Simulated assay, not measured.
Amino acid sequence: MGNKFYVQAILDFFIAFGVVLGGSMLAGMAALFLWRPPAETVLDIAGRIKIWAVVVAIGGSIDPLRVIEANVMVGYLSPAVQQIGYILCAFLGAHLATELVVWMCRNAG
Rank of each mutant, 00 (worst) to 15 (best):
I51N: 09
C105P: 07
I68W: 12
L100V: 02
G2N: 15
Y86P: 01
L43G: 01
A30K: 11
P38L: 03
E99Q: 15
A108P: 00
F33L: 13
P38V: 13
N107C: 03
G28R: 06
L34P: 01
L100E: 02
E40S: 10
E69P: 00
I68C: 12
K50S: 04
V101H: 02
Q8F: 11
I10P: 04
I49W: 02
M104G: 01
M25W: 12
L43S: 03
G22D: 05
G59P: 14
V72Q: 04
I15C: 06
K50A: 12
M73Y: 00
P64R: 11
G2Q: 08
V101L: 08
G2M: 09
G22K: 10
M29I: 15
L26V: 13
G75R: 03
G85P: 09
A70R: 14
I49E: 05
D63K: 07
R66T: 11
V20K: 03
A97N: 11
L26S: 04
A80W: 11
L26F: 10
I68Y: 01
F91T: 14
V20H: 07
T41Y: 02
M29K: 14
G109S: 06
N3M: 08
A80E: 04
A80I: 04
L11T: 09
V74L: 09
L88Y: 01
G59N: 05
W103A: 11
D44F: 01
A90I: 04
G85V: 05
W35E: 11
I49Q: 02
R48I: 09
A27P: 04
A97M: 08
G59A: 07
M73N: 09
T98M: 13
M104K: 08
Y76E: 11
A97Y: 05
L11S: 14
L32D: 10
G22P: 08
G28L: 12
G2P: 08
A46C: 10
N107H: 14
I84K: 05
V72D: 08
M25Y: 15
A9R: 12
E69H: 15
R106S: 04
L77Q: 03
N107A: 11
E40M: 01
V7H: 07
R106A: 11
V67L: 15
L100P: 04
A70S: 14
F14Y: 06
F33Y: 08
V102H: 07
M1I: 12
M25E: 10
V42P: 00
K4A: 15
S61Y: 12
V20L: 13
A94I: 13
L43V: 03
V55N: 00
I49S: 01
C105D: 02
I58H: 07
G47F: 03
I15R: 04
S61D: 07
S61A: 15
A9M: 09
V67S: 11
R36H: 00
K50L: 13
A39I: 02
E69D: 13
L21K: 02
I45A: 01
M104R: 06
A80K: 05
A57G: 08
V102G: 00
I45S: 00
Q83P: 10
R36A: 08
W35Q: 14
L26G: 02
Q82W: 00
M104F: 11
M1N: 10
A31E: 04
M29V: 15
A108M: 06
K4C: 03
A39S: 07
V101Y: 10
L32S: 05
Q82E: 15
G18F: 01
A57T: 03
G28V: 09
V54W: 03
S24Y: 01
A16F: 07
V74T: 13
V20F: 13
N71A: 05
A70L: 14
